[in-house]
Write a protein that binds this DNA or RNA. Structure first.
Lengths: 341, 341
DNA sequence: CGCACCTCTGTAACCGGTTTCATGTAACCG
DNA sequence: CGGTTACATGAAACCGGTTACAGAGGTGCG
């Protein structure tokens, strides 16, 4: 690899001039500049990023902290790939790279790892554990963005879906379809989306003047089996609901299965709305009506907020991004559009 | 951030000694070493990785090239998340980090980007395009591992599933279930898995002494709609098959839908086997019997091969890893195990 | 005792960039 | 014509590590 001194020699100028050609082209004479660029292209010169980072303290690298947790080996984020695509694309456009840190690094102190590697900022994806290393990071001066989990700090913000709003949309939609006895299969009460979606459900019922019946609220676990079990409990009620809002698509599909097994029909007897819009939602039959999250938006919003903090050191924490959700209507709430496969 | 010179001053030793404490502890006096470590911990010293990389030419970073392609915006890898988990875990254990490079970087020359960043190696995930930048990279002296796509070079190897073997397993399984008229919905002829799985299907038929009927081979597109359409063609045949091997799970599910729509039953009238074992396979009803790929194995094998090349500069290219596939038997080939939800 | 050898440590060059400051030259101005 | 200013460039220090080499002090042996 040619170094800056090699190039300087070949061009008959000093290294300072070479450096200027790449970082401050306007201050160098046009003729000199063109010549440098020509020779650089010929000999295939390119600056060494490590040397550059060492001198400038800027790495153009953003850390991604995503603990595929030792304690919970199977943990997966439903939209991981979409988030990464969005994040990477938005970062790329601004010239930033994404570094996935080895988790073992520094025994869990992400802050130390960030400093070591001269990271310009960090994004982390919540894995549900209250990792103290994340709090430490958020409280530092390193720009941070958290996905799916509210967290604060001097230079920290977060991106989250409008869970309550989405839940309201779902309930309203069921109401518009003529349903008046709307139950919910909630997420676990300890999770953020679980709480917020349940709140939205309650708000919507109240706004519509529908009574909230406590036995119409059953807690699930976000997974298929939990949704199935929860639905069975709902089916045993004297006052059987004519619609169910499930706080997650997998639970919704489990619920549909329970309904079908009971000899009832979806949506004729019971309409179902899910939340998330996972791939599967479009593939099951009938298609699952669901509240879609803006999957790509997570990455984009995170990148935007992060770069704002990085580029203008004066700014503290931008306001959190609350991503809008939208209703995707499919077969489980409407018999009309029978989508062929 | 404390630097090595700060630490040296505080300890009353030279920077060389400090450096030795961290890189070559056995050559420094035990007492001195302990003292340095104690002071280092107290003042929170940690080496600057950029400076270290600059001096040693070793970054402990591996690049991940995964073109979420401008030309094909929707391209996604079915197992992306699992691959990343496996890759990251295996790399972490050896102290390596994963850098996702900005695609715009250097206008597509991944090789240049790798050099700039002093990457120790590179992994790339095939996106189906024959990107010349990948070939250039493979032909360089940078250690490379390609996923899902055979490619060669002086220090390059690849990881791929045993597609043909998996197809044979599938066909044999159908045979054991008493099926004798086994059709296939193949993948596109231009894709590697498409070709290999079809080869495996043919081999298996031959080995079993079953005739191969040309009209029993229909090409799909790996997606649901393609599987559906292909199955309809098979259903129109005079000689209707009693089993179908679909070269991808989504196609298999499309096929099942077509079968059901035609008033036939799975598996009673027609048994179905898929390939991949995507999440959905376990969630549809009846569960899809399918040939599972070793998703995590991709990442692990890639990391192992890459680190072998990195650690021993003398070695050229390790042999490619062909990951074994395994059959997961569910409802679409067997009426016995009716899995509850 | 003299010499070889081993153990431990320090000095200083080096990795490849960036940036401050000084300098030379030409243009401009009254 | 002398002085100010703008422009273009170069010399050298610096970023924070690593490492070749030299040297100091102690030990063992003939």
């Amino acid at each position: 690899m040619a170094t800056i001194r090699d190039l300087a020699r070949q061009c008959g100028v000093s290294v300072a001039t070479i450096s200027r050609v790449f970082n401050n082209p306007e201050v160098v004479n046009a003729e000199t500049r063109d010549n440098v660029l020509r020779v650089a292209a010929r000999i295939g010169y390119q600056p060494n990023e490590s040397a550059r980072t060492l001198a400038t303290k800027k790495s153009y690298m953003v850390g991604l902290i995503w603990d595929t947790d030792h304690r919970r080996p199977g943990w997966r984020h439903p939209f991981f790939q979409e988030i990464i695509i969005g994040l990477k694309t938005a970062l790329s456009e601004r010239g930033y790279h994404l570094l996935m840190l080895a988790t073992s690094d520094d025994e869990g102190s992400h802050l130390r790892a960030a400093k070591r590697h001269n990271l310009d900022g960090v994004v982390f994806i919540d894995n549900g554990t209250q990792d103290p290393a994340l709090t430490q990071l958020a409280e530092s001066d390193v720009p941070c963005v958290s996905l799916d989990r509210p967290i604060t700090g001097p230079r920290t913000t977060y991106v989250i879906s409008d869970n309550a709003g989405g839940a309201r949309i779902a309930v309203n939609h069921l109401y518009e379809q003529g349903r008046r006895s709307i139950a919910t299969i909630a997420g676990p009460g300890r999770t953020r989306p679980g709480i917020e979606r349940l709140d939205g459900y309650r708000d919507a019922l109240a706004a519509l003047g529908l009574p909230e019946r406590s036995h119409h609220v059953v807690e699930g676990d976000f997974y298929l089996a939990g949704g199935h079990a929860a639905m069975r409990r709902l089916l045993e009620l004297d006052e059987r609901p004519d619609a169910v809002f499930a706080a997650g698509d997998e639970m919704a599909i489990g619920a549909i299965r329970a309904i079908t097994e009971a000899g009832l029909k979806v949506p004729e007897d019971i309409a179902v709305v899910g939340f998330d819009d996972i791939e599967l939602a479009a593939l099951v039959q009938p298609g699952l009506t669901t509240v879609a999250q803006d999957k790509g938006g997570f990455g984009t919003a995170a990148a935007t907020a992060l770069i704002a903090m990085i580029d203008t050191p004066a700014t503290g924490s931008p306001p959190p991004s609350v991503l809008p959700t939208s209703l995707v209507i499919r077969g489980t709430t409407s018999t009309l559009p029978r989508t062929s496969p």
